[in-house]
């Protein structure tokens, strides 16, 4: 709902400033110490779970983020018993679990990182994912003919299903088309979902974006914890922030990773604890 509203306001604002012009300027920027950047996705499927740790760059530095190699990474249960230690892999600059592991739905976990002499910790629960009963798609013309207009042309996908947990649930929906992960700013903005204004069952709920004939689509639906949803929500707000008078002052998204040693020195990034389910569908020509 809020996303809809924000998109509409952004669109209107874009129309109002459509005659504006842009140019690159030289602007001296303040510089601060390099910060730790952590990104991780821990899933309920048997795999080598990975965590990426790197360091931020000065803004105009166009090089790649340098990996931080000297961290100690451990996955623990909710009582802080170590389940798995992660090892740095020079091959892809990621910390990997030593062996394939699967996180259990309904259980709480702790990921602890020791880096630069400080202990960082993120907690999360693996929530049961939503049930996706069926997926279907309709063309823009078909939708118009039944009085359901849409933005743009092509095919639009819908899903039927229901939620399985009490209270508000949070999801991230990743869409890959013909092997390309849709990860533009709009795609990211549309991928963060909450059930806050929805009923337990959903019918013909639209999947963000449009598709073309012959597209091979992979949908990945992740259940996420509220704090990670909050992180993503602030992340997309930062995306949308144009530094103008209609935007609030930009701030870093609130990480779900706490610094136990020095609480004021918060790392950048998040650790996502998720159950995941995938669906494949091919858009075929309609009669």
């Amino acid at each position: 709902m809020r996303t809809h509203r924000n998109k509409i306001l952004s669109l209107i604002l874009a129309i109002l400033i459509s005659w504006s012009c842009v140019e690159i300027i030289d602007l001296e920027l303040p510089q601060s110490d390099l910060e730790l950047v952590i990104e991780g996705k821990l899933l309920n499927e048997e795999s080598l779970q990975t965590i990426k740790i790197s360091e931020s760059l000065n803004y105009y530095d166009s090089s790649e983020l340098a990996p931080f190699k000297d961290a100690e990474v451990n996955l623990m249960d909710h009582q802080h018993n170590i389940i798995e230690s992660f090892i740095y892999s020079h091959e892809d600059s990621l910390y990997r679990s030593a062996s394939p592991i699967k996180l259990a739905v309904g259980k709480e976990y702790v990921l602890q990182i020791e880096a630069k002499g400080e202990i960082l910790e993120a907690k999360g629960k693996i929530f049961e994912n939503a049930t996706l009963d069926s997926l279907f798609y309709l063309s823009a013309e078909e939708l118009k003919s039944i009085g359901k207009p849409v933005f743009g042309d092509g095919y639009f996908m819908f899903v039927n299903g229901e939620l399985n947990n009490q209270g508000i649930e949070y999801f991230k929906l990743d869409v890959t088309v013909n092997g390309y992960f849709r990860n533009g700013k709009n795609d990211f903005t549309n991928s963060i979902l909450t059930s806050e204004y929805f009923g337990r069952k959903f019918q013909a709920l639209p999947i963000p974006g449009s598709f073309e004939e012959e597209d091979a689509v992979v949908l990945e639906l992740y259940s996420i914890n509220k704090d990670v949803y909050q992180y993503f929500d602030e992340f997309r707000n930062l995306f949308a922030n144009d530094g103008g008078v209609f935007s609030p002052p930009p701030v870093n998204p609130t990480s779900n990773i706490k610094n136990l040693t020095n609480p004021d020195n918060k790392p950048l990034g998040y650790i996502q604890f998720s159950s995941v389910q995938r669906r494949n569908i091919k858009i075929e020509e309609r009669d």
Partner: peptide, 11 residues
Amino acid sequence: FPEGRYMMNGQ
């Protein structure tokens, strides 16, 4: 104004 940059979610 920003004091640095980083990559997250491929962005």
